[in-house]
């Protein structure tokens, strides 16, 4: 096959570029420890969330020293609980599901970003440092009121924080 030497050079360089991209992502996954949302959260009966031990009561609960779990329901067109209160300097694992259609869960301006699919439970773990407030936006179209679907995460100073549900 008659291939010009420049084309051969470019072929090799292009493959190196591709390998470089894959290596960067692998570095992020291993050395930095970025984990992908996966099937670890398990499944749930979307029409019976009120009978489910995890989601019957959307809440934030303490599970260890500085470790918390947040059970969140995304539904047309709210997040529950809202706001989600967590303490500063904590590790929070979010379990998020939907009783109706597909939603999105993005803590605005951050890398905490997942799809929410009825029947599936999305599980993401995030570290919160300083007190502050973040918006949450549903980033997947979920019906005619989609643009009103928002929530918030309030990171409270550790001494002010009380675990529990909304209000």
């Amino acid at each position: 096959m008659n291939i010009h030497s420049y084309e051969k050079i470019w072929l090799v360089v292009a493959i190196l570029l591709i390998v470089g991209f894959i290596s960067t992502v692998t570095y992020g996954a291993t050395a930095v420890g970025i984990d992908m949302v996966d099937d670890e959260g398990g499944t749930v009966n979307a029409s019976a969330l009120d009978e489910d031990p995890r989601f019957s009561e959307p809440r934030v609960e303490q599970v260890g020293d500085n470790e918390y779990e947040a059970y969140v329901i995304a539904q047309q067109y709210i997040f529950n609980p809202d706001p989600i209160r967590v303490p500063a300097n904590s590790t929070v694992t979010f379990f998020i599901t939907s009783p109706d259609v597909i939603h999105g869960f993005e803590i605005v301006g951050t890398n905490a970003n997942t799809m929410v699919i009825p029947g599936q439970v999305a599980k993401i773990t995030v570290n919160f440092n300083d007190p502050g407030e973040y918006g949450i936006v549903c980033h997947e179209y979920c019906g005619s009121g989609h643009h009103t679907m928002e929530g918030s995460v309030v990171v409270q100073p550790e001494d002010e924080f009380e675990p529990g549900g909304d209000e």
């Binding site: 470089g20 301006g109 773990t125």
Partner: peptide, 26 residues
């Protein structure tokens, strides 16, 4: 083009992405 791609990739991955708050660690 190659140099631009490489520089932009490094910037996007290490500055925009890894430099951003709230990383999913589990």
């Amino acid at each position: 083009y190659f140099v631009i791609l490489l520089a932009m990739w490094v910037f996007m991955y290490f500055v925009e992405f890894l430099g951003n708050e709230l990383t999913v660690v589990g």
